[in-house]
Amino acid sequence: MEGKEWFSKLRNKLSGSDGSAAQWPDWYCHYRQRTANPPAPLSAVSSLSIVVLDAETTGLDVRVDRILCLGALRVHGNSISLGEKFEAYLPTPPGCDAKPAVSIHGIIPNSHRYSYVEEPKLLADLLEYLGDSIIVGHHIGFDIEMINRSLLRNGAAPLVNRVIDTGILAKRLRPSGYWTPENDYSLDALARRYRIPLSDRHTALGDCYITAVLWLKLLTRLTVKLGRELRLEDLE
């Protein structure tokens, strides 16, 4: 899985230059304590705490672009709890306004419609919300990398949660081939295939919601395919 590969690479890199652990901010230390015991591969998926996550950014280049908004929803078993949502906006960094991405997510730079927080506060709140939950997202590798870069910039280390990509899950369920073109695993295409209405696309929480429903629908189909209850290892 691409996310996992990326992780191990990053972990190796980290263990090489591990001198920074002592200077981790308190909120990150606290997060690492909470994630010390990750869920076992044999645990039933229905019993796990899942967080569906989506980031809206100024663009697609992880080196220069920045996060504008983070949204997340919690999923327990087969239900999505709207009361336990995470939503936070960052001010648009200088030089990043007037980017073409504005027309996609519609977040007007520094608009008064949102209340903004500073980056460290956003990261601390996010990690508090995440705990040791499994992170689920669509083409989530990008979002994770954006968050990790932000974490590193703020003196912390990357996320350690287990990450599952609904795009890859969908591909496993229905591999590309003659009938399904290689590029047909976009959130829009999948939402259409699994009949999920596409309103509020490209708001972080709106995408989270669509992804969460997609996640639940994919899990059901995978359960039917395997003929037994899903375990975490089935999703690797």
């Binding site: 087969n78 239900s79 999505i80 709890s81 709207l82 009361g83 429903v213 359960t223």
Partner: peptide, 10 residues
């Protein structure tokens, strides 16, 4: 609406 839980039933 803010307290609604969305439940998916296969």
């Amino acid at each position: 609406a803010a307290r609604v839980e969305v439940r998916y039933q296969p």
